[in-house]
């Protein structure tokens, strides 16, 4: 298929997934705050830190108040990773490949954009509790529509690849939010408040029920392991990598376990490392450090995919 088209389907999916995950990690914070005892300092700054865009935030808003941060992450049209900007980019990409995706996909992403756009015009932060679940659902709907209406061809695999790489990256960031919030109060580890926070975290990854089915008790180690190494839960990092790798091999035509392109090699290597990693090893190197390195590696995979399939240099 056309390189430009493959690129657009890939980014269409990344942006929809990104919007969903911004909703998720803002939502986890909102939920955590609701359960926090009165008088406890509100922790909003970590949200901006985990996006990696704190410079831009500072420039545009200055003070890290709850309102500023919520506005920045949801409705700021100038900030390219806000929910509204993600949807705008997703839609632009969809619009440039309308003839390749199904009409149903286009209608869903267009409706999604119009909904968010309307919410942004109104700009009511007090309505966000209802808004975030809507964003999550619309994103699921998009993925489901794509699954059920588009041929599972090369373009579809590029789309799935984009979605899963984005999701792996964002699950890492959602876990990282917890790290920042816990930092000032290490003594809270194991307290009832801490338990509530981990539950909120699991819920924001829609992982609470599935986690309970697997290992009953909420422990920091258990939650971390579930969200990074579990091979069955669709938002765990390892699950994303396994599925992404399948799509990549479908695209490149290379048998699993071997490589021909640089992308095969980078993704295969990362996935196989996680195959043999234990949660104890992660804790030893430090969760934050581990997540940080993982994000760098994921970025490298994206760069290789860009070079292998999307660059339009003359042959």
């Amino acid at each position: 298929m056309l390189s430009r088209v493959a690129d657009s389907i890939y980014w269409l999916n990344r942006y929809v997934e990104r919007a969903e995950n911004v909703a998720r990690f803002v939502d986890v914070n909102l939920n955590l705050l609701l359960d926090a005892p009165p008088g406890m300092e509100q922790q909003w700054k970590p949200l901006v830190i985990t996006t990696g865009d704190q410079d831009m935030f500072k420039q545009r808003y200055g003070e890290a108040t709850a309102e500023n941060i919520l506005r920045f992450l949801t409705f700021d049209r100038e900030y390219p990773n806000s929910i509204i900007s993600c949807l705008r980019s997703a839609r632009e990409n969809a619009r440039s490949v309308r003839e390749v995706i199904s009409s149903e996909m286009w209608e869903q992403v267009n409706t999604f954009y119009l909904t968010v756009n309307e919410a942004a015009d109104v700009g009511l932060l007090s309505e966000l509790h209802n808004f975030f679940p809507e964003v999550k659902m619309a994103s699921h709907l998009f993925a489901g529509v794509m699954d059920a209406t588009m041929s599972h061809n090369e373009g579809w695999h590029f789309g799935r690849l984009g979605r899963l790489l984005e999701r792996a990256d964002k699950t890492a960031r959602i876990l990282d939010v917890k790290y920042y919030i816990l930092l000032p109060s290490v003594t809270d580890v194991g307290s009832p408040l801490d338990d509530l926070q981990w539950i909120a975290l699991l819920k924001s990854a829609s992982a609470y029920e599935m986690y309970r089915k697997r290992q009953y008790r909420i422990t920091p180690k258990g939650v971390t392991e579930f969200l990074t190494l579990n091979r069955e839960f669709p938002r765990s990092i390892q699950f994303c990598l396994l599925e992404a790798e399948q799509s990549l091999h479908q695209i490149s035509g290379t048998p699993a376990g071997t490589w021909r392109t640089e992308s095969d090699r980078a993704l295969g290597r990362l996935r196989s490392e996680l195959d043999f990693l234990t949660i104890d090893e992660i804790t030893q190197q430090g969760l934050h450090e581990f997540l940080d390195r993982l994000q760098v590696r994921l970025n490298q995979v994206s760069e290789k995919i860009f070079a292998d399939f999307f660059t339009l240099e003359s042959v």
């Binding site: 298929m1 430009r4 493959a6 003839e99 390749v100 339009l312 003359s314």
Partner: peptide, 24 residues
């Protein structure tokens, strides 16, 4: 049909070709 823009196309070996993920 494929929807192409000028930048997707190139003349090569005397034929019109498009740039795809698997070459021209």
């Amino acid at each position: 049909a494929e929807l192409v823009e000028g930048r997707d196309l190139v003349v090569s070996d005397g034929y019109l070709k498009m740039r795809t993920t698997k070459g021209l």
